[in-house]
Amino acid sequence: MDKKNWRTFVYYGSLLAFLLFFTWAFFEVVDALRAKEVETFDTAVINVVQSWINEGRTARMVFITELGSVKFFTAATVLISLFLAIRKRYGWALFFIFVNALGGLFNSLLKEFFKRQRPDVLPLIEQGGYSFPSGHSMGSFIFYGAVSFMLFRLIKGKWKKTIAALAAGSIVILIGLTRIYLGVHYPSDVIAGFSIGAAWLFFCIMVFHVSEYTFKSRRKKTSR
């Protein structure tokens, strides 16, 4: 196996490994939730995070949490997809719409399946619906992860790629933290949201690569 093929093997092997790991992590949280083994952990983390509450910090947390809202993701997905389409990156535009739109639907189905009520703690904002898994956490991992993946593929320069990945990761973590701080999610909701969001993202990336390979192969055959 030459160097190029080895890198390809490692890359796709890593995608599959991440998909399996995060899927396993999600079901581990589900098992712990059903066995009622997360209550002590959730309470301890909530007590620590909500001990930070003050007026100025709460305003910043509300702003950050909006970066993980359905309204923000919908508007941003439309704008980014239009930009990609204008630049004739049609495959990327379809990928971005697919991963975010179906990811949101997937979260809604999971919430309806588990029907976990929201924490009975100090809620700093109003939030309806069920709690598990956190939609903000799942959606932020999918959205910012997809943006990071596209930038990694479309821009040049290791530093630019590294900065984009670090920025995306930081935003995702902060959004998850705000959900605990604001009293609308248990920490286990956030961890589960990150886990299943990551699994969905890596699954979609693999589907994108398969579709990309299939399209290129068919185009080569028709051009002969």
Rank of each mutant, 00 (worst) to 15 (best):
H209A: 14
I155D: 09
E37Y: 05
Y12P: 02
R118T: 02
L94A: 14
F18K: 08
M206H: 13
L201I: 12
L109A: 13
F132S: 09
H185G: 03
L109I: 14
G91V: 01
A93K: 01
A199W: 02
A76C: 11
L20F: 05
L124H: 04
I191C: 05
F9V: 14
R34G: 05
F149I: 08
V70W: 05
F149A: 10
A164S: 14
I205S: 09
L110D: 11
E28M: 08
I125N: 06
I191L: 11
P119I: 06
E212Y: 04
W200N: 05
L102W: 15
G91C: 01
T43P: 03
P187S: 00
F96E: 10
I53G: 01
L79P: 07
R219S: 12
P123V: 07
K111N: 09
Y11K: 15
V49L: 08
F113P: 06
A199H: 07
L33R: 08
L15M: 11
I163V: 15
R179E: 06
F26C: 06
S188D: 02
I155V: 14
R57A: 10
L174W: 08
V78A: 14
K221E: 15
V210C: 10
A146Y: 01
V210T: 15
S81D: 09
I142G: 04
A59Y: 10
I86Y: 11
I180H: 01
L109D: 13
A17V: 09
Y12Q: 09
K156Q: 15
G145Y: 07
K160M: 09
Q50T: 04
L151Q: 11
T40H: 03
F73Y: 13
L166G: 04
R60L: 15
G104D: 14
I163H: 04
P123E: 12
I64H: 02
R89I: 02
I97G: 08
I173P: 12
R218P: 03
S131M: 06
N54A: 02
G197N: 03
L15H: 02
K220W: 10
F21L: 12
F141Y: 01
S140C: 04
F141T: 12
T43K: 12
L151N: 13
H136L: 02
V45L: 14
S223Y: 04
V207R: 04
Y181V: 02
P119T: 08
F26K: 08
F96Y: 00
L16K: 05
T77D: 13
L109E: 14
A59R: 11
N107D: 10
K160L: 14
K221T: 14
